[in-house]
Amino acid sequence: MERISKTITAYDKHCDVYNDKFKEFEPYVQKIKEFIELLEPGMKVLDLGCGPGNVSRQLMLSGKEFSIEGIDLSEEMVKLARKNVPSGKFSCRDLRDISFPAESFDAILLSFCIVHLDGTEMADLLKKVAKYLKQERRLYLSFMEGKKDGFEKTSFSEEELFFYYHSLEKVQDILKDNHLSINKLTKQGYLESDGSITTDVFIFASKGN
Rank of each mutant, 00 (worst) to 15 (best):
H166P: 01
Y132C: 08
T9F: 14
G195H: 15
L59V: 05
E103K: 13
F204M: 03
K148A: 11
L59N: 02
F35K: 01
I182D: 08
F25D: 14
E145G: 13
I108A: 11
K128W: 01
K153V: 09
L48G: 03
S155K: 15
I36S: 05
F143G: 02
F66E: 02
L110N: 09
L61Y: 11
G88M: 10
F163D: 06
L38V: 12
L38M: 13
L73S: 14
A205L: 13
E158N: 14
A102V: 12
F66Q: 01
A102E: 15
H179N: 14
E37P: 04
I108Q: 13
Y11Q: 07
I108V: 15
T9I: 13
A107T: 10
F100M: 03
G208A: 11
T120K: 06
E24S: 14
S91R: 08
H14N: 15
C92W: 09
S67V: 07
F156T: 00
E158M: 09
K153H: 13
R93K: 12
C92M: 14
D173W: 00
C50P: 05
E152S: 05
G42Y: 00
Q172I: 00
D97E: 09
I4K: 00
S56F: 05
S206W: 03
G208C: 15
M77T: 06
Y165D: 08
L185G: 01
Q172L: 10
E169N: 02
Q172T: 02
S157R: 00
H116Y: 15
L191Q: 14
A81H: 02
L73Q: 08
D16M: 04
L161Y: 01
E192G: 12
V45F: 03
C92E: 10
K147A: 09
I108T: 12
G53A: 11
E34L: 12
N84C: 10
Q188D: 13
S167A: 09
G53E: 07
K187E: 13
N183K: 10
S87W: 01
G53Q: 08
Y165V: 03
C113M: 13
H166E: 06
L180M: 13
E158A: 10
E152Q: 08
K147E: 10
L191G: 02
R93A: 12
